[in-house]
Design a protein around this nucleic acid. Sequence first.
DNA 1: TAGGATTTGTGCGTATGTATT
DNA 2: TAATACATACGCACAAATCCT
Lengths: 233, 233
Amino acid sequence: MTQGASGDGPGRGETYSGAARERFERLYETLRNRICLLDYPPGHRLSEEALATEFGVSRTPLRRVLGWLEAQGLLRSVQGVGTIVTDVEIDALSQIYQLRMELAELIGRLGPREPDETMLTLFRNLRDRGQQLAESPDARAFAQFNIDVFQALMQVSNNKPLRETSERLFYLTSRIWLQSVPQIDLGQEATILAREVEELLTAIEIGDLAAVGLIRRAHISMSFIRLIRYRDG
Amino acid sequence: MTQGASGDGPGRGETYSGAARERFERLYETLRNRICLLDYPPGHRLSEEALATEFGVSRTPLRRVLGWLEAQGLLRSVQGVGTIVTDVEIDALSQIYQLRMELAELIGRLGPREPDETMLTLFRNLRDRGQQLAESPDARAFAQFNIDVFQALMQVSNNKPLRETSERLFYLTSRIWLQSVPQIDLGQEATILAREVEELLTAIEIGDLAAVGLIRRAHISMSFIRLIRYRDG
DNA sequence: TAGGATTTGTGCGTATGTATT
DNA sequence: TAATACATACGCACAAATCCT
């Protein structure tokens, strides 16, 4: 699963070769998914010992994975206490959202990639999935769909550091956002996201990637406002 | 040494408490400085064993530090080979510079901090140092001055994720840039940077932080063009 | 081609810190 | 307040991978 586009950097786990590298990447992706799909919600305490046993490795290589997740801001290790899934305060959340908005716009301006048939197919599939999701909302399916839409959007820009930065901030905040959505409004959120994907597809079909960035920016902005309302109300 | 501004996140080494945290931070800063001041130039191979001996610790806590530097993209560990200081290819460098330009402008727009007497003093001191440096250029002093100017600029924005992202990209590229400057033109570069600081100070004195971002962006742009010329010529 | 020297990765026992009873 | 349980941090010995002779 090599990341596309030109301009290689270190990237996640592309560090050492062979079996060790694959194992690292597998564990990293697995744990990050569990965190971002709220299997491990913010504040959850996980045990090195238990995870090591589950994955059939010793604590040492596992701690390397936890260290990277900690460097990404998803975990926090405290001696004598445990390894805790991070939460994000409202002020910090606001700052991240402001930056994410700017980066979303940049996705359409920095090294835009000419839409090809593959990208169109990708977004058309997402559109169909979005319609299905809006009809029968489900928290976990929504979380996964949200991630997949984001990943598809990252295909729009060739600028790798921009993609990696956006990704880090997305994984840091999307789980907090999802946690704040009351069950009763999940259907509405699914409908909104499905409509966003339709808009994005329209912009991609005519090859206006700058518009893609602007649409995304607008939706990130509105998402944050709704999040505040969910919290207060 | 709490980082100023509002909105806390995990941040570097603020993870565990007490002596361990201080040691981690000390080792991290030390090694990052050595990398960014070109004591360890790109491609340099460093030994876990030797570093552990030097700092009087075992390999285990040292490896934690190396892991974070690897996550930041400054190191790359390969089993059986060693821990190598990363280089950055010209294509990747170009992408990072494009992003850094945009982020520099954002520094003046996202959560600008009202300039106070402390900030003015900071930049006035930098202006004086810049003038001295332009008179008697020195590679290492220039590298340190470049870092200090950057750190001062980060004070302009209250947006912590923006500061951290900018910082990561700066440390990733500034050392590559410095390595490309021929000794003969170091004096010219020092003069240019000293003038930039004067411009920045002027903008700060009248409280126009958006202008600060624009000036910085322009200089980053020109820096990259000169870097390309140094490489080719 | 093969073997030894060197380097990072791994496993495990112990030290140290925290929270609770 | 002290003791106990339990978590991560640490140190060391060994395995695995790479490079060079």
